[in-house]
Structure formats: C-alpha cells, structure tokens
C-alpha cells in the first residue's frame, strides 16, 4: 500500500524516463567520439561556413561537447580577427 501511495505521489513518472534521457546523452558522446574524425570534420565545416562572413583565427578555434546532468551542448569558441564588409 505504501509502495502504491509512493508511486502516486511521485512526480517524476517511472524510471524509464531517466533511462531514455541518460541513453540519449551518453550516445551523443559515444557517437561523437567513435565516428572517425567526427569533431575534426565538424571543425573544418564550421571554419568554411564562418569564413564567408568573417576572418577567424583557425588555430584558436575550440569546439567541444559540454554536458551537465540533463543536457549536452555543442560549445564553439571562435576568435574573430576581422569582420568582412557587408554590402547588403
């Protein structure tokens, strides 16, 4: 009975939601690390896109996956050398 009451009063649902959430997070890291040159390829593409708009310091570029308990973010620190002049 106590068990039953606990289940009703608990607000986080069953443990499976935690399982799904933890799996999603861990697989983001697994897949990023396992895929050959994943981060390098991403960096190269980022440089290519951003270079259309500004001149950046490619050696100072830092791209990482940052995680806390509930989410993962792609964090990119990209030092800008010079802005390109826009005519639009």
């Amino acid at each position: 009975m106590l068990d039953f009451m606990n289940r009703i009063l608990r607000d986080d649902g069953g443990s499976k939601d935690r399982a799904v959430e933890r799996l999603r997070l861990v697989l983001i890291h697994d897949r990023a690390k396992v895929a050959p040159r994943f981060m390098e390829a991403l960096k190269e593409d980022l440089i290519a896109v951003i270079s259309k708009y500004m001149e950046i310091d490619e050696d100072g570029l830092d791209v990482t996956l940052d995680s806390d308990e509930t989410s993962t973010a792609l964090v990119a620190s990209i030092p800008i050398r010079k802005m390109k002049r826009s005519y639009d």
Partner: peptide
Amino acid sequence: MIKKGDMMDVEDVNDI
C-alpha cells in the same frame, strides 16, 4: 514493468 513506467518500451528503444 512497461505499464508501470519502469522499463523502456519498444518505441523508446527503436527511437534511439
């Protein structure tokens, strides 16, 4: 266990 929300169901696993 799926009914109680304590096990991932087929859709959860297949989504991932």
